[in-house]
């Protein structure tokens, strides 16, 4: 499989086999990601990290990934410090940046920005989030986490919980899980349900889908993927409190769950998961965050052609 020069814009740009291959490479990166083994694989390469919108995890883990592999990083963490504020187009910023680097990682508030950047750049573009659009590296690290924690992706019953309507990353995750024909339960308030098109697409791909409005039946779940319910979605703050409260995960909601059920969350969390859950063996979200590093190392090494 040759990934050299490829852009990483949407999870849909990758086949099931390609995804598995990326996860295999990420697996091999683990000791380097943990700092137990040193690597010079990307020595001499420069990654431009262009964050037109703030991010903690995505940006830090990309930069850590590049540096763990012996590469260099240039870039900015918010647009305030760039000529973008003077009205420069993204296209021009990309054309400038690409002349200084070998790969560009970007986050931008507009949907389709990464797709556009890829048209202007000859170096690979890795999308670190484009507005409400795609976030493929999050999706890959989620899959990596499920496989690492559960041994394989197939055969699990995965519940996606929270705002399933607006969160496009959760749509991509549903799609990716459907590639593996995973059984899924979509749990959300009725007003934040998974869009019909996503449900239909997953079913057409052969995934078994159940739709629920409450936390009942968690005892059948292997992976509980929690997402944030945003206050802005509710005109009435009281209504928000009520809804958010009824989907909150605490020790009580976990009483009857499977011994080895894991809880994932893309973070940052607000109060979807009570801090007391952190101490349980179910809490996988901090390990999940760490997994961003090996997965992003794998992508960098692959698109730069240092791993074939």
């Amino acid at each position: 499989m040759n990934f050299k020069g490829r852009d990483v814009i949407s999870i849909k740009d990758f086949s099931r086999e390609e995804i598995l291959y990326i996860l295999d490479v990420a697996e091999k990166m683990l000791p380097i990601a943990e700092g137990k083994k040193k690597s010079n694989l990307l020595n001499g390469y420069i990654m431009a990290s262009l964050f037109f919108e703030p991010s903690t995890r995505t940006r830090l883990s990309f930069e850590a990934a590049m540096k763990r592999l012996g590469g260099n990083v240039i870039g900015f963490a918010q647009p305030g410090t760039t000529s973008l504020q003077k009205g420069e187009t993204l296209a021009d910023t990309i054309k400038t940046a690409e002349s200084y680097c070998d790969v560009i990682v970007m986050r931008h508030p507009k949907e389709g920005s990464a797709r556009m950047a890829a048209k202007f750049a000859s170096v690979p573009i890795i999308n670190g989030g484009d507005g409400a659009g795609h976030h493929p590296t999050q999706c890959l690290l989620d899959l990596f986490t499920i496989r690492k924690e559960k041994g394989q992706i197939e055969g699990n019953r995965v519940a996606l919980l929270g705002d399933l309507k607006y969160g496009r990353t959760v749509h991509s995750l549903a799609y990716a899980l459907a590639l593996f024909k995973v059984d899924m339960v979509f749990i959300s308030p009725p007003e934040l349900q998974m869009p019909k098109e996503v449900i239909e697409e997953c079913r057409e791909m052969g995934a078994n889908i159940t739709i629920k409005n409450s936390l009942e039946g968690l005892d059948e779940i292997d992976v509980l993927y929690v997402t944030r319910i945003q206050k802005e979605r509710f005109p009435d703050p009281e209504e928000y409190k009520k809804v958010a409260g009824s989907y909150r995960i605490d020790l009580k909601t976990l009483e009857n769950v499977k011994e080895d059920m894991i809880i994932m969350h893309p973070l940052p969390r607000v109060d979807e998961i009570s801090p007391e859950v952190d101490e349980t063996k179910h809490a996988a979200y901090f390990r999940q965050t760490f997994n961003g590093v090996p997965v992003r190392m794998a992508l960098l090494a692959l698109v730069l052609g240092e791993i074939k």
């Binding site: 187009t89 993204l90 296209a91 931008h108 508030p109 507009k110 949907e111 389709g112 920005s113 797709r115 556009m116 048209k119 484009d130 507005g131 409400a132």
Partner: peptide, 13 residues
């Protein structure tokens, strides 16, 4: 129709 689409900005596309 998406106001937040990159094609609705001043980008040269």
């Amino acid at each position: 129709p998406n106001p937040n689409c990159i094609s609705n900005t001043k980008e040269p596309i």
